[in-house]
Amino acid sequence: MMIRAAGITIALLAYVLVFSMQERSRADTLLEMRHPMPSPIQEAALGYLRQLGGEIQFIKTAVFYGGVEPGRDPYDYAPQVAGRLAAAAELHPHFIDTYYLAQAILPYVDSDYAALANDIHRRGMAALPDNYALLFFIGFNNFYYLHDYAAAADYLHRASRHPGAPSWFGHLAATLAGRGGDIRGGLLWLEAMLAAEEDEYMRERYRHSIAMFHRAIQVLEAIEDYREKHGREPATLEELVPEQMEKLPEFDPPFRLSWDPPELRLLRGDQQ
């Protein structure tokens, strides 16, 4: 009896000792996240619980990201995080938090991950067609990280058409259309927004932007005429004077034209 009690006590003490060693080594180990199982396998395994499975993937990712040490190389964990969030979106595409977290983490890594974030958002767009935030995220990623201004303008324009979307979405979409070279498209959107807008301050801003877009279209038409006559793009906009136009129109700050053959862009501020 005494021997048995002593044996149990020793085993218990040994376990406590080994457990504390294990905990100490855990504290020194870098926080890691594993790649998830492919989402079709998770979906098949979880069945009725697949939505809960998606939410748990989100929670695991959020808790992991909250514990990442400042200054850690994001490429250490970005593939795993992207995989988990993609799986969460597949398992539970209606769960909006997945997309907010994907937007918060992935695009900052690099442009490839920004494109991955957009793929995840597109999964959400199919499930949540009334949610304009996802369109805004894709539009923003295209603008800021991928420098695809035409695509950014398209998504922001689609977002602006949702009821409840902020009114500046449309203005931003038109501006980006100009920056992306789709000046005529931007002008159409501005005119539609002017027709629908009731606030006089916003109407005045739209009128100003429309005037700038009209001037840019004059230059665009002059370039098209030059191209038809000479069979090539003008090297500089000055070549359009005086044959295609008497003088180049002036643009009120912050608007300015940028000619990078064959793209004519209408830029704002100090944009490149």
Binding site: Y48, L49, Q51, L52, E55, F58, I59, A62, V63, H92, H94, F95, I96, D97, Y100
Partner: peptide, 20 residues
Amino acid sequence: FIPRDIGRASADFVLSMAWL
């Protein structure tokens, strides 16, 4: 643990526990 879509996640959790 859910920052935004609390209603949906809570309903999923309740029915998932019942299913289990």
